[in-house]
Design a protein around this nucleic acid. Structure first.
Lengths: 202, 202
DNA sequence: CACCAGTCTGAACGGACGTTCAGGTAGCCT
DNA sequence: AGGCTACCTGAACGTCCGTTCAGACTGGTG
């Protein structure tokens, strides 16, 4: 028995496990409901270790946020690069947001982030950055589609803003478990909206 | 000096003052950040009285929610009844949501409500009810506009859902203070979206 | 006036929870 | 081997905060 199953090989792995546990706890307890002991339980460590690696509960929460941010970027970049043309890319964004991407479609978490952003500056910065990234990806795809002739929006900026906002709004229904809102319906509703908004040829 | 300025005429007025104070505190501290002492300070009463009138902090918060719900309905009904035709009504809904109505455009509060709805059943019910009401008002206006020939949506239900969601999404930007998002821009972006979505004649 | 019910207060209580701390273990350098 | 550093733990501490409570004040009723 060279290694105890509980003790990770490297401290860094323990640290990572704590962050992942933090994300999990926040997802279903919310930022406000997350206790140090919850994270400790979920990560299988002591409370002390969490305070040792991060300086405070807030430190752990913020570190979890930046982890999330990084994963969001990775997901988005990797997934979009795989798609051939602008139409496919846009279609894929709908599916990603509908929950097919591990980080991108994590709407309960984004909801929590939005509200935390109302009161916490770190969260505000993270939120802004995520949103900017998502919107600029969207705008890029639209521009690309304009170049290829697939899209013909009346006002590119306004269309990008509307489509991004539409996604957020639909996602709220999904996150809150509204009757009749499913990932598929979200994807469809958004795609139809994009077809209209970008005046795609049918 | 028949009446002390601090002591309200009727206990009911005190109760009401507490509820209003609760709403105020929640609006800028959030549900999670709201303490009994905050409410007491804002209402100019003792902590005890809040626990006397409502059974607990949660009781006060929930009572504040139903107050909000009632005011939302009043605002919406009164304001919409004043408008002449479907086009004017729809236009007015944009303005209402952009923050011209005292209760309707209170987006920070709605954001807080959404997240609370993730974890609290009372909040969930209130949210659902508010959303249903708003969406059905929207759907009604759209139907009316179809009857008069002002609107011609491809799919009425889908259009209503998209326009409601678009509003929520835009409102998030507004509530979070995104650069470049103002009530006027929100109203414009939404209205343009509605023009497209409902295929209004220009 | 005496009594009572409703309203209101400020202090006290007790539990929850973030943080601190004293110490224990394991790898690593000399 | 000895010792140093990083990592980790569980208990203890102190604070914050919701709730309870004993009593004061008021207006109305017999």
């Amino acid at each position: 028995m060279a290694q105890d199953a509980l003790s990770a090989k490297a401290p860094e792995e323990r640290r990572d496990r704590i962050l992942r546990a933090t994300v999990d706890v926040v997802r279903d307890r919310g930022f406000a409901g997350t206790r140090v002991s919850d994270i400790a339980d979920a990560a299988g460590t002591s409370q002390g270790l969490i305070l040792y690696h991060f300086r405070s509960l807030a430190g752990a929460l913020n570190a979890a946020l930046t982890l999330l941010e990084d994963e969001f970027y990775e997901d988005l970049d990797r997934d979009l690069r795989e798609q051939a043309g602008p139409v496919e890319r846009l279609r894929h964004m709908a599916d990603l947001a509908a929950g097919m991407g591990p980080a991108v479609g994590d709407w309960r978490l984004w909801l929590e982030l939005w509200v935390r952003a109302l009161h916490d500056d770190d969260a505000r910065a993270t939120r802004e950055s995520l949103d900017r990234r998502w919107r600029s990806a969207l705008r890029e795809v639209i521009s690309e589609g304009q170049a290829t002739g697939d899209f013909d929006p009346a006002d590119t900026d306004a269309s990008a803003m509307r489509l991004a906002s539409l996604m957020d709004g639909l996602a709220i229904q999904l996150a809150l478990g509204d009757r009749g809102m499913t990932p598929e319906r979200l994807s469809d509703l958004w795609w139809q909206g994009a077809v209209t908004e970008l005046r795609m040829p049918v």
